[in-house]
Each structure stands twice: as C-alpha cells, then as structure tokens.
C-alpha cells in the first residue's frame, strides 16, 4: 500500500469512525442513565436523514437554517419517544422497556416506509460540505475532513457538560444510583429527558455528517449504522462517553483497513465488526474504558 492510499484510507476510516462515534454516544448515555439499550436510536438517526431531505429539498430552507430545524425536529422525536414508550415503563422490569424499544424501532421503520415509500431518496447537498477537496493526492468531500473535528469538539463540550455542570452532576448521580438520587431530590424525569435530547441532537448531527458523503436515505438506512454504533458503544465500554467515541473510531478505521489490506474480504466487512464484538465480549466484557462493577450479592 503506497502512502497516498494509506492516507486516503486513514481519512475515510477516521471520518466514518467519527460519524459512528456521534451515534454511539447516544446509546451509551441512555444506557448509563436508564440501563436501557435504546434500539430505536438507529431509526431516530434515519428519521433525521429524512428531516434533512424535507427541510432542504421540500421546504427549500438555506442549509444553516435546515441543520437547526433538523436538530430540533429530531430532539422532539427523541423526547416524544421517551415520554410515550419508555416513561410509562419506568417501574417495569428492564426487559419490558427493551422490548418497547424494539417495538419503537419497528414502528419508525414501517412508518417511514408508509409515509415516505420504500424508495430511496436522495440526500440534498448542504452548502460547501460536498465540494471535493484535495490535499496532495488525497481527495474527499469537505464533510469527510470536518467530521472528525466536529466529533472531537462535541465530545469535549459533552465531557465538560457532564463533569462540570450541576446538570451533569445530576446525570452522574442518576447513573450511579437511581433510587438514591431520587431520594436526594433530583428530578429523575427531567434528567432522563435531557439525556434523550442530547442523544437525539448528536444523532441528528451524525446523520447529516453520515449521509452527506453517502447521499441516499431509505427506511432501513438506520439499521446497519445503528447496530454498528451499538457495537462501538459496547467496545468502548457501554455507559462511558469517551469510550463510545473510541469504539466508533476503532470500528470505522478497522472496517476501512480490513477492506484495504484484504481486498478479497470486502464482502465480510460487516461480519468483521460483529466478530470484533464477540472477541471483546469474551476477553473484556466491560469494554475498553468500562469500569469493573463488583456486584453485591
């Protein structure tokens, strides 16, 4: 592999990984607070793709306004799902709420098929994001270069939010002990809603960054990215925010280089991600950055 090919693969892998990372954060945060794997998260991401299409193609909003509208619409969707499908099950066994999440996932996919038809729709061009940019022989759309930057900036904002604000403190408290923090006067429902808002907003940004260089949205486009980001969250240590980002990068880069190094294995790049999950679960079930929780019997 010559240097140009190597660099081009790095750019692709890092960029794909950062888009995964943004979605993985949503999984990991919800898990941290609710101990719930939000299976609908990938489909919220898909819906954000459709919202972008409507905002730009149908309502002809300028792209900077559209991005804002898409984030708000996705946040409303995410919060509404939490209120309607998860909140009534707060006291129910954890399995029930997970089944509810799977139900929401199917609902969103079928709703999208029903409302927007199963035909793929083209993702609009967002300003300068899709202009092809060249550094030496490495060529890629602008969005590929800025995705990692946006992800890192958002990660630091989020870490600051969690570690240095009162709301973040409440979030950490809820994730440590749900009952105790309620007794301490923390508004659990508000904290959970905020978690979903942050997760959905990141999914919306992730969707814009993911679909711009892969400009096609259809009802199942949230499926694979959703699964992979969930795996990214597990690999990083589910419940751990920097871990989710690292997991996203690991999967994005590994996937790209698997194909680059073994061109005959291109058909197996998805399978590889799942193999990675199995290896991780066998040797380090808590993930790269996950803490070992000693269970009291």
């Amino acid at each position: 592999m010559d240097l140009t090919t190597f660099l081009q693969n790095c750019v692709t892998g890092v960029s794909l990984g950062s888009a995964y990372a943004l979605i993985a954060i949503g999984y990991t945060m919800v898990y941290g607070i609710l101990r719930l794997i939000n299976f609908a998260h990938g489909d919220i991401f898909m819906m954000a793709g459709y919202f972008t299409i409507f905002a730009i193609t149908n309502f002809m909003l300028p792209w900077y306004v559209a991005i804002l509208v898409v984030i708000i619409a996705t946040v409303i969707l995410g919060a509404a799902i939490e209120r309607a499908a998860y909140k009534p099950l707060r006291e129910a066994p954890r399995m029930s709420i997970m089944i509810s999440a799977i139900g929401v996932s199917f609902l969103l996919v079928n709703l999208a098929t029903y409302l927007f038809t199963g035909l793929p729709r083209s993702f609009p061009k967002l300003g300068f994001l899709q202009h092809v940019y060249k550094i030496g022989d490495v060529s890629a759309p602008v969005v590929t270069f800025i995705t990692p930057v946006i992800t890192i900036v958002l990660l630091f904002v989020l870490i600051y939010l969690v570690n240095h604000t009162k709301m973040g403190m409440a979030m950490r408290a809820v994730s440590k002990d749900y009952e105790a923090s309620r007794l301490m006067g923390i508004e659990i429902n508000t904290i959970i809603t905020i978690t979903f808002i942050i997760g959905s907003a990141l999914a919306a940004i992730g969707a814009i960054l993911y679909f711009s260089p892969r400009p096609m949205v259809y009802p199942f486009s949230g499926m694979m990215p959703g699964l992979k980001c969930f795996i990214a969250a597990v690999i990083g240590g589910i419940g751990n925010i920097p871990g989710a980002v690292i997991g996203g990068f690991v999967i994005g880069i590994a996937e790209t280089f698997l194909v680059a190094v073994f061109p005959s294995m291109t058909g197996y790049s998805d399978a590889f991600t799942f193999v990675l999950l199995i290896i991780m679960l066998v040797f380090r079930p808590t993930g790269l950055l996950g803490e070992n929780i000693t269970e009291k019997v």
Partner: peptide, 20 residues
C-alpha cells in the same frame, strides 16, 4: 474484483483499492 453487501452505503475502501 471486489464485492459489497446489500444496503452498504460506504464504498470508499473498495474504491480506494480500485484507484490504486
């Protein structure tokens, strides 16, 4: 001669092999 999966959306790695 390379293959991809149904519903795959990212072909950069495959195309990079082609380009080289």
């Amino acid at each position: 001669s390379q293959t991809f999966q149904q519903n795959q959306a990212d072909f950069n790695a495959i195309l990079q092999n082609v380009k080289s």
